[in-house]
């Protein structure tokens, strides 16, 4: 690995100063599970690495007012072990849990998964589907943005020089609201999502959907919020007809590429499949407020 400098500031302000003042490229290190791979392959040659894990509050999950607040450097294992979060948003926990192996779970973070800006990031669709907001610190102070506004394209984010994500705010769920995340990979583990799909729904007492967000991953340059899919669900129970329209809407929202992980045709079809399957799980959970963890597809 090429030579680089390292600093581990103790405050957000010091981290901002380090990132903003770096002579060349500065990168944030939280879990490092993407950063170190890019460093080693030579795809990325930063001059400075800023380790944010020594900053108080960067690791941990707390409930604050109407929100869960997840520190940006919180590793997967802590997110999976947080029972209130898992009960509220099993789909978010599923998404996080699907990032890499158990070893990766010991380090990987939602912030890293997001800011690496891969359209295939597993934790991002359910977080967007939950209407989470990212708190960004930078030279101009703090700002709060919807998570979907962070990633602008493969490998690109809206973060400015000196900025980094400090924490995520996820609204506490309403009654009969739940979610699910499914992804498709060729093996049972250890692959990057070929397609990912998060479905977050709120039901009325009759079981009909009053609100929905469907987010696809790996089918376009960024995660896609499928408005048509939410429309297909809203006002409906999950009958065959609704599933069919959901499937079509999901497919219609896909603008994937053909690459080593899948073809355009395949990704498009599987997006529809996953939307149907994830919706079935989310509806079931919302109806029962169950908190069981489902695995991959």
């Amino acid at each position: 690995m090429p030579r680089v400098s390292y600093t581990a500031p103790a405050t957000v302000d010091d981290a901002v100063k380090a990132l903003a003042g770096a002579a060349g490229l500065a990168k944030v290190l939280s879990g490092g599970t993407d950063l170190l791979v890019q460093l080693k392959s030579g795809r990325l040659k930063p001059d400075l690495i800023v380790d944010t894990k020594r900053i108080p509050g960067m690791i941990g999950i707390r409930e604050e007012g109407d929100y869960f607040v997840i520190g940006a450097a919180t590793p997967g294992v802590l997110i999976s072990a947080h029972q209130p979060l898992e009960h509220a948003y099993p789909g978010i926990v599923e998404g996080v849990d699907l990032i890499g192996s158990q070893q990766i779970q010991g380090r990987c973070t939602i912030a890293g998964n997001l800011c690496n800006a891969s359209p295939a990031a597993d934790s991002v669709p359910p977080v967007i589907a939950a209407r989470a907001r990212a708190v960004v610190a930078g030279p101009g102070g703090r700002r709060e943005v919807p998570v979907e506004e962070i990633v602008t394209g493969p490998g690109r984010t809206s973060l400015q020089k000196g900025e980094f994500v400090v924490e995520f705010k996820i609204p506490l769920p309403k009654p009969r609201q739940s979610d699910a995340y499914l992804r498709f990979i060729p093996r049972t583990e250890m692959d990057i999502a070929v397609v990912g799909c998060a479905v977050n729904v709120t039901l009325d007492e009759s079981g009909a959907c009053t609100d929905a967000r469907v987010v696809l991953g790996a089918v376009a340059p960024t995660q896609v919020i499928v408005a048509g899919a939410a429309e297909a669900l809203r006002g409906h129970k999950l009958d065959e007809d609704t599933l069919q329209r959901l499937d079509s809407a999901a497919q219609a929202a896909c603008h994937p590429i053909t690459d080593k992980r899948g073809t355009i045709e395949y990704r498009t079809k599987v997006a529809g499949v996953l939307a149907r399957r994830a919706a079935a799980i989310a509806f079931d959970r919302a109806a029962t407020r169950g908190a069981t963890i489902a695995g991959a597809v």
């Binding site: 599970t33 170190l36 192996s101 070893q103 010991g106 380090r107």
Partner: peptide, 24 residues
């Protein structure tokens, strides 16, 4: 981080030591 041959336990959790810096 794909093969696990470098697995170590850090503060109770397994990690790939190839994806962690020595300074950490």
């Amino acid at each position: 981080g794909d093969c696990g041959a470098c697995t170590v336990i850090v503060d109770g959790n397994i990690v790939c030591s190839c994806l962690m810096l020595g300074v950490e």
